[in-house]
Amino acid sequence: MKRFSWFNATSLTLGFAFLYLPMIILVVYSFNASKLVTVWAGFSTKWYGELLQNEAFLDAAWVTIRVAVFSSTIATILGTMAAYILVRGGRFMGRTLFSGMIYAPLVMPEVITGLSLLLLFIGIGLDRGVFTIVLAHATFSMCYVSVVVSSRLVSFDKSLEEAALDLGCTAWQAFRLVTLPIIAPAVISGWLLAFTLSLDDLVIASFTSGPSSTTLPIKIFSAVRLGVSPEINALSTIMIGIVTIGVVSFSIMSKRNAVRREREERAAIHAT
């Protein structure tokens, strides 16, 4: 490792300090007793208590979770279907348009996606609420899911599916018994990605939500416009904590699975 010089060490240290310091400060100051966020006045958890009594935030959190669960589930089903068609579907009419519609939402500015969906919902007279946000989130998330799943589908051996079909499986059985278990990690990460995208989205939700369906990001945004508040710090800390635990445990789990699979494959090769 002769090239891991002091230069690399400093750039990594400074880089990760830049990435993490703002969030660490946010977390530390959420335990600040003072109402003035930038002045430290001793340790306290009172802002967490106040947060739990704030009905408006709790309602918004509940709306957000419901939207995220429904939209990411729909997005995962549709996105997996779309990926399967794009990778295994061969030629069909309008394939170019289809792949265009899968990739376009990934680069579309959120303000345009939000505006266009709102104009559609008004045009067909659909009342805005949880349902319309779910539709909107499922639409852009399915494209992300499809990209994640298709990268997995491309890399695995098609002959496994063909073998299942030769051995008398129907197409559905081959998918359920062979393809799905193999692409499952990608499907799960697609679902997680869709879920966090939905939790995180402010712009599209602002366009497609109604008066009774304020999501957490909308609530945070309107509170934050008035400046920093200790309650928002507490809320941010909770969200950062959940994400950190989720990502770390998911990556440990998938690493463990990969190691186990490798061991099993090696054992299978030895057995033959």
Partner: peptide, 30 residues
């Protein structure tokens, strides 16, 4: 591990990451 440390902020709310800078950069900020 380094890879995960780069990806982790990406999973954290965009809004919160922007918000964190208000407290740092404001007049009486950190």
């Amino acid at each position: 591990t380094l890879m995960m440390l780069v990806i982790l902020p990406f999973w954290t709310s965009f809004l919160i990451r922007v918000y964190a800078w208000i407290g740092i950069l404001s007049g009486e900020g950190y």
